[in-house]
Design a protein around this nucleic acid. Structure first.
Lengths: 210, 210
DNA sequence: TAGCGACTTGACCGATCGGTCAGTTTTTAC
DNA sequence: GTAAAAACTGACCGATCGGTCAAGTCGCTA
């Protein structure tokens, strides 16, 4: 039973994981209203009743997924201080955000769908912790500009620029693939896109790589 | 009857317009599957049967809306030639794309939803006319770089950068509002955001305003 | 005034929606 | 071995889905 210290997953853990992954797939594609529990159950290869047994309701499943996404993003984005090198910080920011688009595109699309709906479930998060996150970074960017260490660029819009440009490769993947004529985005594509973004944005902010 | 040359709208024209606008609102928010004809009818203040009388089916209504959007974008984006000034062209491109985000945010969100779903209805458009549009611009950007008139920046990714950064203010409006703590985006906000984008991207491409 | 085509709409169809529940099987604890 | 707990699931509920249809209303011309 539990004499195995390095626990193998419980039945509950295993099934919840399958359900979460399947639900992320369906919600990311069709949004909250457009997703059906039936479709999620089919993707998880479980009966509909079993899905509801674990997650309680469609609403709770959706909220739990959003929370998982926000938690992932929080842990992935490193903290910064005024003493750091601006170019390094912004380059790290761009590259780690782009890495998230590559490794967790479904999370990104889930979030995008929630925002498109008017952020009914994430309004407090946006006006709360996310706003604080942006403001703290913006304050540092502003001080860097005052010290002449970078061009005076409105820091909030700069953050939006980086967010949108990096998320584009997850949220609008279908468009990128259709226009470039590829079947999928390879590691090299993400690397080249990251390089291009760093090149333009760093220079655009009056920064050169250390 | 029709001795009025400057025609006042037909009953059909008037109702189709109300239905189209209502449908754009609902589809943009909830996506194809998540939108219901009932909700569209309610937004248009018409009985559901009347909506179906005019549009035939949900699918046809959705496709017609997508076509209206693509047509709007085509007419709004001006053509360019190799002889033009690179800085002027890119600045015009950024500002007209941002103007579309401001004047037609619902069209932008409708398109975003379609892409998030994997572009089931727009695949040929993406791989066809849209791809050609991008390639023709990219070719000019590449020649400008060869002539030393701008930095060598991968033109396709540059276009994606401009698309994503400008569409952000339409598609992710809820996020922008939540983080900036505003109730709505004013003309001044769009102007300032456009200025910021032009500043960073032009300089990032090694361009200065003429 | 009769007739015609465009427009309007409530009633209705089978399918699917989110969710409940009773009943069964499987796992766990002692 | 046994009983409690956890896991599982088919049947079913009322509501809503996209769509059809027949019975209208309305404005017009002959």
């Amino acid at each position: 039973m539990n004499d195995a210290i390095a626990a193998e997953p419980t039945v509950r853990e295993r099934n919840e994981r399958r359900i979460f992954d399947a639900a992320e797939l369906v919600f990311a594609r069709h949004g909250y209203r457009g997703a059906s529990i039936q479709a999620i159950a089919a993707a998880a290869e479980l009966p509909k009743s079993n899905v509801l047994y674990y997650v309680g309701s469609k609403r709770r499943l959706y909220v739990a997924l959003l929370e998982r996404t926000m938690a992932r993003w929080n842990t992935a984005l490193s903290d910064i201080s005024e003493d750091d090198d601006p170019a390094t910080v912004i380059e790290t920011f761009i590259r780690s955000k782009m890495a998230l688009s590559q490794t967790h595109p479904l999370s990104s699309r889930l979030f995008a769908n929630e925002i498109l709906q008017g952020a009914p479930f994430l309004q407090e998060t946006l006006a709360g912790s996310m706003r604080e996150w942006v403001e703290s970074r913006a304050a540092i960017f502003r001080r860097w500009a005052e010290q002449g260490r970078m061009d005076p660029v409105d820091p909030v819009w700069l953050i939006f620029l980086i967010w949108s440009a990096t998320q584009h490769y997850a949220d609008f993947e279908a468009q990128v693939l259709g226009i470039t004529g590829q079947a999928g985005l390879a590691d090299a594509d993400f690397a080249a896109a990251s390089d291009c973004l760093c090149q333009v944005i760093l220079k655009g902010c009056g920064l050169t790589r250390a």
